[in-house]
Nucleic acid binder design. Structure first.
Lengths: 254, 254
DNA sequence: CGGGAGGTTGACAATCGTCAATCAGAGTGG
DNA sequence: CCACTCTGATTGACGATTGTCAACCTCCCG
């Protein structure tokens, strides 16, 4: 189901470029090379799968609009969400470079993505070292978030876990240039939050209500989160943004 | 505390080469370039830190002998181990490329490592695309293991979690060419196992004894694990090696 | 022989899960 | 406009996996 709106093809990858520029210094030629990448546009419905576990993924995928998640299913049938992705992020570099997918990627909301063939990713990464370094660092930051999530799920109680996640979202949305970090739309059901934090939806519900009762957050619409007291929420969530690596020291390839 | 045994300098990185060759095809020039990397040898005592959280890491580190772990400390003071590393593995590419360490790396046993400067890693990665791809894929496999650990800690019960970890060790040791995968030395205390699985040492103790009572494993020496029934252990541990990406499909850079 | 680290065990506590009912809101067709 | 339906949120009662505390044991090593 390829999209028709390919008119502004040159600027369509701007969210990606914006993101990669936070990872490494790019020059005009780098940006041009990214814009020139062959790609297929794809419109995605809510719940659409981008890749399924055990698929052979041939494409990487840049989220242009909408949110997606990576998840795994364990033997009991329970699900664990291992990552959430926002516009501008590259989903599935992992699965595509690794050959066989070790997890599924599925849309949380409707959206739009650009598919880029694995070979083209490899080519640009090694033809243009700045881009390659940015991509590499991006995957390393992903990995850093995975590590934090292991600690979150392994060593924090429910309240702390959820507060931590809410803080992470807030910051990452800000980073992605998506709206007010203290008042955002969280495109997840409580069951999905449960699958993210290793809890049950019932317990997530109780915990969120307790955060709300303590005025750390407010909920207006169905899924909109207003952070009432960022400092207290961050403290409750044992949140320290270091692991997001918001500023690197040595971005330039020498 | 640099080591003195630098005589066989050419072959000392063989464990690394061996490992990278499972990630991407290397030619003679690639191997020679790896062997020619400037490095500092370092002897490490048990419990020595290689990097501490928040340090500015300037070096990556190839484990040549011994085991190490990555860990994080949460607000309550509890610790979460997020990875275990074996000889041949590259520790701390992450921290070194990312600038500021988001976690600590510490020796589980005494050992020996080669330190390679960040800039030299970057250089070889982009001068020799095969090596670069192998390094990149290696970090992606690390990330895949992180994802599995999130699922392990988030969605499996204690018995399954521990069985899973024991299976993972077994396979990774075999991969690294270290002894019999059904009869190996696990260089961790039960408290460290607890910090790995998000449990307490007391519960780890009980769970291990229960696995032993069911003849899934046997313990001979202080930390030697004998897998009595691999099939049953893997089943109990909900273990599927897919996430280790033992064979890639497209290893050659085109 | 003494000290220390790590392993083992029991009694009890608590965080979190299970089950199940009810409620709220959005979309749909008549 | 109003039943109807479906998904998701909310709540209560109860259960259980896992944690806490504390004692004791075992082995290694100086």
């Amino acid at each position: 189901m390829p999209d028709t709106h390919e008119s502004d093809r040159g600027s369509i990858l701007n969210p990606l470029i914006r993101r990669l520029e936070t990872r490494a210094m790019l020059d005009d030629a780098d940006r041009a090379a990214i814009r020139a990448l062959p790609m297929k546009m794809r419109a995605l419905e809510q719940h659409n799968y981008i890749v399924r576990e055990r698929d052979r993924a041939e494409f990487s995928c840049v989220m242009l609009r909408g949110f997606s998640m990576r998840h795994k299913v364990v033997g009991t049938g329970d699900r664990q969400i291992v990552a959430i992705h926002m516009p501008g992020e590259i989903v599935d570099l992992q699965n595509s470079l690794l050959g066989v997918a070790d997890h599924s990627v599925q849309m949380l909301t409707a959206g739009r993505a650009a598919l880029i063939a694995r070979e083209d990713i490899k080519r640009i990464a090694f033809d243009r070292p700045n881009v390659g370094l940015a991509l590499w660092i991006d995957t390393l930051v992903d990995a850093s978030i995975f590590r934090e999530w292991i600690a979150n799920v392994g060593r924090r109680d429910a309240r702390t876990r959820i507060a931590h996640l809410l803080c992470e979202f807030s910051l990452r949305l800000k980073l992605a240039g998506l709206g007010d970090p203290t008042n955002y739309e969280l495109p997840m059901t409580q069951e999905q939050l449960a699958d993210t934090t290793g809890l049950t939806s019932v317990h997530v519900n109780r915990t969120i209500k307790s955060l709300e009762a303590d005025k750390l957050i407010e909920r207006i619409g169905p899924r909109s989160i207003v952070i009432g007291d960022w400092r207290k929420l961050a403290e409750t969530g044992d949140f320290d943004s270091n692991y997001l690596h918001l500023q690197q020291s040595e971005l330039v390839l020498q």
